[in-house]
Simulated scan of single mutants.
Amino acid sequence: MRLEPAVPAEALAAIRAPFLSAGATPVEVPVLQPLALLLELAGEAMRPRLFVVQAEGGEEAALRPDFTIAVARAHLDGGVSGGRYFYEGKAFRAAGATARAEEFLQVGLEAFGGDDPVAADAQAAGLAWRASLAGGRDDLTLRFGDIALFAAFIDSLDLAPLLAARLKRVFSRPRLLAAELDGSARAGEAQAAVNPLAGVSEDQAVAALAQLWAMAGVSPVGGRPPEEIVRRLAERAEAARAPHLTEDEADVIRRYLALSGPPQAVLDQVAALAGPARASLDAALKAWTARLEALAAQGVALERCTLTTAFGRAFGYYDGVLFEVRSAALAEDRPVAAGGRYDGLIARLGGGAGGAVGCMVRPARALAAGGE
Rank of each mutant, 00 (worst) to 15 (best):
Y256I: 07
D139P: 06
A279G: 12
E44P: 01
G222A: 04
A283K: 11
A207R: 05
V29N: 07
A210W: 11
G350T: 11
F92S: 01
H244V: 09
L176R: 15
R232T: 14
A347G: 15
R173G: 00
P48Q: 04
G320A: 12
R278D: 15
Q211S: 15
V357R: 12
A152C: 12
A274D: 12
V200M: 15
G370R: 02
Q264P: 00
E28S: 13
D115P: 13
A36Y: 03
G354W: 12
L32A: 13
A271P: 06
R130S: 04
S132E: 09
G89C: 00
E10V: 12
G275Y: 14
V321Y: 06
Q54F: 11
G58T: 03
A94S: 05
A301M: 04
V170D: 03
V300K: 06
F92V: 00
L149F: 03
E249I: 00
A190W: 12
A356G: 07
A111I: 01
V29F: 06
A258F: 06
E189V: 02
Y87F: 07
D121V: 10
D116E: 13
D203E: 15
A45M: 09
S327R: 01
A134I: 13
A328E: 15
A364I: 14
G355P: 00
T309M: 09
A240P: 03
P48K: 06
L3Y: 14
F67Y: 03
A185F: 05
P18W: 05
Y256P: 07
L105W: 03
E228I: 04
G108R: 11
E235V: 12
L292A: 03
F315I: 15
C305D: 03
T141R: 15
A337P: 04
E238K: 13
G199A: 06
I346Y: 07
G223E: 04
V7C: 09
P161T: 07
A283S: 11
G340S: 04
P220R: 14
P225V: 12
A185G: 13
E103C: 04
E102L: 00
V7D: 08
L259H: 07
D66C: 00
L302W: 08
G355A: 15
P8R: 09
A165E: 14
R175T: 15
A210P: 01
K286I: 10
P262N: 08
M215D: 15
A151P: 00
Y256F: 14
F150C: 10
D203M: 12
A240V: 05
G312V: 06
G299K: 05
A62F: 08
H244G: 14
L63I: 08
A164T: 09
N195Q: 02
A94P: 00
A347N: 13
G57P: 01
L20S: 14
Y256C: 01
A239D: 11
A55C: 05
R224P: 02
